[in-house]
């Protein structure tokens, strides 16, 4: 048993099979890169894990606990999910941070020193905290979303094309941030070569599924 087990998941949208009898076992600390052409169900897999879509059949098990409508709330407190869609807020970045870390689950998680080290680590200027999130560039938004995931204190990450809008130097920085921690379990959907490192297990959806 891994930390995250996906067993025989099938889901159809509008009569079209998106995932069919898909299984995957993820060990603690494992780094997985998920590849494959778009529209093949990679993002759907993440949505299923987060409970944003419900599979037609199959189960998802986190730490030996099957995910259902009761346990999904606990999963969401343990798994950090950064989606492709970075339209997550309006208003000042600092207000967004305050909001996220006012949630009961994140009480006293925020470490201000760590906040600044991540800001510099992601090549951002601390001024960004006082800027309006909705006016940031795509790459900046992506980095703010990543920053929130990194600050959340979680150790399982689902990252969906999080480096797509960054330049290559930054891509490498972000990849290193996530891959260097042995205790972190990371699943990353990406077309970027930077994720393909020796320690990464590669799953190609184009070959796995029909």
């Amino acid at each position: 048993m891994g930390i995250l087990d996906i067993k025989n998941i099938s889901i159809r949208y509008d009569g079209q099979s998106v995932l069919s009898d898909f299984s995957l076992s993820v060990a603690k600390g494992e780094k997985i890169l998920i590849k494959g052409r778009s529209g093949i169900g990679k993002s759907t897999l993440f949505r299923l894990i987060m409970g944003f879509s419900i599979p037609d059949s199959g189960t998802i098990i986190l730490d030996n606990v099957p995910v259902n409508s009761d346990t999904i709330w606990n999963l969401r407190k343990r798994v950090a999910y950064v989606s492709q869609d970075t339209d997550i807020a309006e208003g000042k970045v600092t207000d967004l941070i305050d909001e996220i870390f006012s949630f009961k689950a994140n009480n006293e998680v925020l470490d201000r020193d760590q906040l600044y080290s991540i800001i510099y680590g992601l090549s951002l200027n601390p001024d960004i905290l006082n800027k309006d999130y909705s006016k940031l560039s795509g790459g900046e938004k992506q980095r703010i979303a990543l920053m929130l995931a990194l600050l959340s204190g979680k150790d399982i990450f689902l990252l969906d094309e999080v480096t797509a809008e960054l330049d290559s130097g930054l891509k490498q920085k972000v990849v290193d941030m996530f891959l260097k921690k042995p205790e972190w379990t990371v699943l990353s959907i990406s077309h970027d070569r930077e994720w393909e490192q020796s320690a990464t297990r590669v799953i190609d959806f184009s070959q796995e599924t029909n």
Partner: peptide, 21 residues
């Protein structure tokens, strides 16, 4: 803006916390 709501859920928010905005 469903994504904003889902983002808050995936940041560990309870339903009510995510819906306050």
């Amino acid at each position: 803006n469903e994504n904003r709501y889902l983002f808050r859920l995936s940041m560990g928010a309870e339903k009510s916390e995510a819906l306050v905005p």
